[in-house]
Structure formats: C-alpha cells, structure tokens
Design a protein around this nucleic acid. Sequence first.
DNA 1: TTGAAAGCGTTACCAA
DNA 2: TTGGTAACGCTTTCAA
Lengths: 354, 354
Amino acid sequence: MKPGRRSTTGTKSAEVSNTVPTHPRRVTSYDVARRAGVSQSAVSRCFVPGASIAPKTRALIMEVAAELGYRPNALAQGLISGRTNLVAILISNLTNLYYPEVLAELSSRLLARDIRVLLFSLTSESEVDDVLDQVLRHSVDGVISAARLSDAQLRQFAEQRVPVVLYNRTSGAAPAASVSCDSVAGERELVERLLAAGHRRFGIIAGPEDSSVGEDRRRAALAALAEGGIEDVPFVRGDFSYESGSRGLHALLGERDGYDAVIAVNDQMAIGAIDAGRDDFGLRIPDDLSIVGFDGTGPASWTSYRVTSIRQPIRRMTDAAVAMLTERIADPSMPAESRQFTGQFIVGRSARLG
Amino acid sequence: MKPGRRSTTGTKSAEVSNTVPTHPRRVTSYDVARRAGVSQSAVSRCFVPGASIAPKTRALIMEVAAELGYRPNALAQGLISGRTNLVAILISNLTNLYYPEVLAELSSRLLARDIRVLLFSLTSESEVDDVLDQVLRHSVDGVISAARLSDAQLRQFAEQRVPVVLYNRTSGAAPAASVSCDSVAGERELVERLLAAGHRRFGIIAGPEDSSVGEDRRRAALAALAEGGIEDVPFVRGDFSYESGSRGLHALLGERDGYDAVIAVNDQMAIGAIDAGRDDFGLRIPDDLSIVGFDGTGPASWTSYRVTSIRQPIRRMTDAAVAMLTERIADPSMPAESRQFTGQFIVGRSARLG
DNA sequence: TTGAAAGCGTTACCAA
DNA sequence: TTGGTAACGCTTTCAA
C-alpha cells in the first residue's frame, strides 16, 4: 500500500465517523485487503478470471469481501483495463411494435454474456451525432444499431476501434457488419402468392424515404410485381405507424378504386389499413381486398387481424447480432460481414390466397 | 505535467507510429493541453460548467480540442467526481405493450437532461439481485424501477445512497419515492359507469399474484363493486398478455355463463378477451358482453377494439419520475414521496354504457 | 504465489 | 486566472 494515501484517508474518515454519522465510504479493494491481511493486488486477482492466486487466500478474501459487501467499481475497471462490458444499443422509433421484442431479446442475450446495455432511443434521426459522441465518451465495447448511421458516423466508430453491428439496416458505401431479414425474398414470396391467387391491381403503402428497410421492401415488392408483369404500381408513404397505414389506405382508395391487394411494408401499417378498409370503406378483408404486411410482430397475429405477412426470425437475428458483436469485440480485425435471414411466410387471414 | 509520465508515453507512441500504423491512442486532455500550450487543469476547466477560465484561453483550448477530436472520458470523470450522469432503468416484461411507450418517454426525458440510460430488462423477477449488483457496480446516479423491488433491495440502494423512483410500483414497508396511476380511482370510475349502465354480473381477469399494480386494480375493482352491492365476484389470473386475456375469458365463461361485464386489469388482456369473445364465443362486444381494460396503450384505441379503459397520463408520469429522480440526485436528503396521477376515462366501444 | 508500484484520464484543491 | 499535484479504485507488470 502506498503510504500516506489510503491509510490516512481511512483513518481520517474513521475519526470523523465517531462524531458525525458520515456517509459510509464505498467499500474498496483496499478495505478488503486490509481486513484480510493481504495486498490490494491479491484482492484484485480474485475477481480476474485467469489470475494466479492460492485457493486458500482466495477463499479468505472472498469471505471478507462478502462480509464487507465489496463490489468492484466498474468505472475503475473500465478505465484501467480498457474494457467496460458495456454495449450501446441505438434504436429509433421504439414505439414501433417491432422493436420492443428486438430490444428485449438483445438485452437478455447481452446480459447473459455479462454485458450491460446503454440505451439510446432516438426520437429524431438528427440527434445521431450527439448520441455518437456520448457513446464514445462512455468507452463502450461495441454498438448495435437499429438506427440509421451515415457512412461518416460508421467511419468514426471504426476510427475509435469500436465494433458496430447494424440491425436491419444496410450501410451505404462502407462495408459493415450487419444482420437483416431478406426483404427481396420476403416481398417476392408475398407477391408471388398474391399473383398466384389472381390479384392484379396492387397498391403499396411504403415507409419514409430515409428508411433503408422501408425502401428495400418497396423496391423488392415493385421488382417482384414487375417480374409478374405488373407495372406502374402506385404507392404512398407512411411512417410505419398504425395511423399512417390507415391514412395510406385512404390515400390509395381516394385516388382510384378497384384494388385487389395492398402491400404494406410493415405489420403496423397493414393493421391500420385493415381497420380503415373495414371501418371506413366497409370492405371485407380479404374478400374485397387483400392486405399484407411484414415483420410478424405480436399484434399481427391477434385474431381480429391475422395479418398475412413475413415473420422475421427475431431470435436468430438477435442471436446473430450479439454473436457478431462479441466476436468483433474479442478480435477487432474481423472483416465486415452481412448476415441475411429469410423470414417465414405467415398465411394469416388478411389476404385471399389460392 | 508530471515528468516521465505522459510525455514519455506520448513520445513512444509517436515513434512507433512512424513504422507501424498502430492504434491511435485515445485523445486525452493532456494531448489537448500540450498542443494548446496550457496545463491539463485548464483543459478540464473548459468542460466544467462553473469553472473559472479566461475567455481567450477557453477559446483556444476549445479550438484545439475540436481539432484533435477530444472527448472527455466519462469513466474517468465518473470515477473522480462521483457523478456518472447514468441512470439505471429496470423494466420487467418489456413486451407488455405499455412499457415501450414508458421507456421511450423516460429515455428521451433523461437524455434531454444529459443523462444516459443503463437498461435492465428483466425476464424473470428472480434475477433482480444480480441486476442490483450490476447497477451498483456501475455507480449510477439513480434508478427508475418499473420492476418489483423488495424492501431489502430498496434498503440496499438506500445504504449506497442511490436514489430510487418506483414507477407504477408500490413499496412494501419502506417508504420510497414513487409515481403511479391511481388504481382505486380508475377502477372505481369503470365500475361506476358499468353499474350505472345496468351491469350486474361481473367477472375479473386479474394479473399475477406478485404484481402490485395487478393486485391493486383487482382489489380496487372488487371494492368498488362491493360498494355497489355486488359481492362474490369471480376472478381468474392472467399474466397481462393477449393470450392470457383470451384464456381468461375462456376460464370465466367455462365456469358459468351469463356475465354482463368483464373487467380486465390491463388493455392487452382486455383485447385478448374481446377477440376470444367474438371469435370463440360468437359474442357481440359490447352488446352481449362489456369488456373494460386499463392503461390506454396504443392498440387499445385501434378501431377493431376501441377498448373502454383508463388512460394513464404517461407524459406526466414519466416527467414526474424523472423530475423526482433528478431532485433526489441533487439532494439525497429529499424525503420519500409518492405522486399518484388520476387516469383519464376512455369511453371506447367495448363496453355498453348508459 | 505474492506485494509494490505504475498507470488509466479525469476532477478538486491548492498556491502562485 | 492559472498550473501543480493528489486523489478516484482498479488492473497490470515486475521483482521477490
């Protein structure tokens, strides 16, 4: 122990506590060491996996540590070791019903690996740079982003040697580690089923222009339709919300009628469209109009809707995301890699099939 | 600057980088200080709100800092200052549709106050002690818990001087700061409206025994019914999920029939009950059976359901929670206080009223 | 296997 | 207003 440092502090606060009931200073490894009659280094080694320590010493120290209620200070550990066991999760639009499931899965998987989650729920994409700054200040070991990151932002993480895994986002120019659900295969399956069932007049309720998933799905649907000989398919844009799905259907039906099928790029908008179709236009779904979605989120399977959709394999995807991230934390030289999963077709009851 | 410490390190890494493209060491306040020709203390003062620093010096330092991409290390700041600007949010059952909204609101409000969120999504109440340990290791400034905490756990936070605000939870014996939505007033309003409309035969779909909100609402509903002369009301238990609401209605109707109204203690179960009533029993809701819920979450207002319910003032509640917490962080001597908000009655379409 | 000592990157408290 | 120096609580060499 350094003379004149711990010891004096300890003595001082002990003296004070005789007169005033002062705040009990946080228990440190020095306290444990003193009480156990060993060095502070020995205490530290007890909490480091591969350290060399005699079983007997270890037992003694652990006993004293438990007695004193010692808890290693994560800040100090992170500062000295360069590892915080902290991962930032960036999510935009948490109220989108699809994300809570993802967040819950990610967080439980990370926790299982003894990693804590620093959550950044973005309300508007503009804040991303501030968030990025905060993420870096906290020296997280890695980032999982279900929010759009620009190439410049990705580059910044790369420069700081912070591994990033994109969740259901694609990067622009720069290659990045990413996990996603195959939009092309998914929309193709939906479209092919609808075409096979005789639908010919289509409308699309797309997402915002700046959403990569939304645009991927819209383009995939259009491409699949084009292959089937259907061109010039009208589309409107929503923001993935229930209300915008409802508005979307109004917009489509207001412009012209006679749709056979409406393709919404997510379930929540599909549900909004289904409700609007039934309530506002008196349509029977799927008899008068087929509506399909994407995601396979909870409410999509509720019996009032039973949305015909593509279910994302959330378990596998979150598992892959966490695995990819931890790999890259352990070995930062891992190359970029994108893993794409194929969603499962859900028959549902919102589309007339076959 | 201490001789033989920073300076040598800096020189070394500079020499190395001429041969091998080594990891650029993180930019520290020493780097900024050296480049700006000032002391490290001066740099630090630039980032502390009330510090005394000459405007001119400050400008120079900030310029150099920006140029070098300097970011204060949050770990070091937290370690020395005792403040981390980190708040832990404990949430059980994130997939309950009500929580994502709460989480999004809390997180954006905290972020607005320059506080970061450490998220702990509990999958089972048993893990709480591990989580508590982790929370304390990270020296968070405070905790907002939408998960059940035992008196012993609350005491532990109190001992460590970590302020806690309970969200929609009540503490047992120990008084604690808490924000909640008045179950008694809410259920009373629902019951009185139902009674006024002539309902006499009631059933309740309650929550798990260990849920304080669930039990509060169940008891409140029973009490209000008793006041209206309705006794021996049967109830079944669910877990707040859609499926358990459906199962709950099956259980109630399987035992006896002839219910006028079913009171579910949250919207998600009410929705499950509505769907089961319609689809499995061919009931018209609300003509044949009234069903009411609680919370006023997103899907409850979807036109297929329009659940008659009590809407929790989430904005006000999250605002209050964050305010109470920050107050207690600033002044740990603040006394325990519970703020209870009254929810708003939502007429909806799932109950026959008047 | 153990202990001493050197940091990690800050803030806080001094004198100057 | 400044710069020097002592912490904060830990991990990590390095000798013993």
